[in-house]
């Protein structure tokens, strides 16, 4: 054949990079189409004729958070789908083992009544909280202006759903062991009305109603999710004192996922902090959302037994996380 066929070393868009691209970069970069034209994120009538183009212009192109090329963002974990499923399969096997072992020894039957009260009010209703986190991540992944961001938020959504289902699982087990209690029946009512959960619910609902992509990212990944996760961590430590080693171990495992979310969130802040006003923009949003987060932590932790100083510890960890971000002076 006279046709001249030549190969290439790597994608032309990655050719300028000094390092050889990783599998993550090869399969995750540059797959977004909606970040090309300010008025026409989608290939239909431009804004304002098409509501979705108006939405994207307002919430992404005109967001106070700006960067000239979001597609350059990289997840520090370089997580790709096939590694995600492999890693989470191993973690889920571990969780299966935990559940199996504890079921074998009739763990739930031995839990103290005062601890069962805590589980009923502060643990099993958290499947609603996980739903809010699942929905929050789902908004992020569909609005973010880079495919590397969609992937990171997508895996985060998977994680939130993972723990939603595990809480549902535990709820049924606890109900079976303690049918006279409110397990599997009263969670919704408690999520809507129990005082200790209202701070978290308020934080979640307001976070979900935030549509500017930068603020939605900040509200969810820098404030609301870490705050919710810190309350989970405190629940887990308390569980140890009440011989609920199962919950303690589950929480430890859940924190692995939360840490991954913090790693890419930290990286995103670092990625854009040096540009324009981004530092003060992000700091402004954190300042706006922190009072709600602190209130949520305080109301939740106050309902924990042995609650002395617990909320302060949790809030301090949240502050420490914020201090670790590239925006802090």
């Amino acid at each position: 054949m006279a046709v001249n066929v030549q190969g290439m070393k790597t994608w032309s868009k990655l050719a300028k990079n000094k390092r050889r691209p990783s599998e993550y970069e090869i399969v995750t970069t540059n797959l977004q189409t909606r970040n090309r034209h300010r008025d026409q994120a989608y290939e239909l009538s431009p804004a304002p004729d098409l509501a979705m183009n108006e939405w994207y212009r307002k919430n992404v192109f005109d967001s106070p958070l700006q960067h000239e090329d979001w597609e350059e963002f990289r997840d520090p974990d370089q997580l790709i789908y096939r590694v995600y499923t492999r890693t989470q399969d191993v973690q889920e096997s571990y969780v299966d083992g935990l559940l199996d072992d504890h079921n074998e020894i009739d763990h739930d039957a031995g839990l103290k009544p005062e601890w069962l009260d805590v589980l009923e009010h502060l643990y099993t209703p958290r499947r609603y909280l996980q739903t809010a986190l699942q929905m929050g991540a789902a908004y992020l992944l569909q609005i973010v202006p880079a495919s590397t961001l969609t992937a990171a938020a997508g895996f985060q959504e998977g994680d939130e759903f993972r723990w939603l289902q595990r809480i549902a699982y535990r709820t049924r087990e606890l109900q079976t062991a303690h049918p006279e209690r409110g397990f599997a029946i009263k969670e919704r009512e408690r999520w809507e009305k129990h005082e200790a959960l209202q701070g978290l619910r308020e934080l979640m609902e307001l976070m979900l109603a935030t549509y500017d992509w930068g603020e939605a990212f900040t509200a969810l990944n820098l404030v609301a999710k870490p705050a919710a996760d810190e309350t989970m961590r405190e629940l887990g430590s308390t569980a140890r004192h009440y011989d609920d080693h199962l919950l303690a171990a589950l929480v430890d495992n859940q924190m692995r996922d939360c840490d991954r979310s913090r790693r890419w969130s930290t990286a995103l802040v670092e990625f854009c902090a040096g540009h324009g006003d981004n530092k003060s923009v992000i700091q402004g949003w954190i300042d706006k959302w922190m009072p709600l987060a602190e209130k949520a932590i305080i109301t939740y932790c106050a309902a924990l037994p042995e609650s002395e100083g617990v909320a302060d510890t949790a809030i301090e960890r949240l502050h420490a996380y914020h201090r670790s971000l590239s925006i802090s002076a």
Binding site: E23, I26, V27, T28, L31, I80, Y81, R82, Y84, Q134, A138, L141, S147, T150, A151, G154, F155, E157, G158, F161
Partner: peptide
């Protein structure tokens, strides 16, 4: 749809691989 999101990340990644 959560699985749908994960599936489609897979389909994009495996095919581009």
């Amino acid at each position: 749809a959560t699985f749908g999101t994960l599936d489609e990340i897979r389909h994009g990644q495996i095919q581009i691989y």
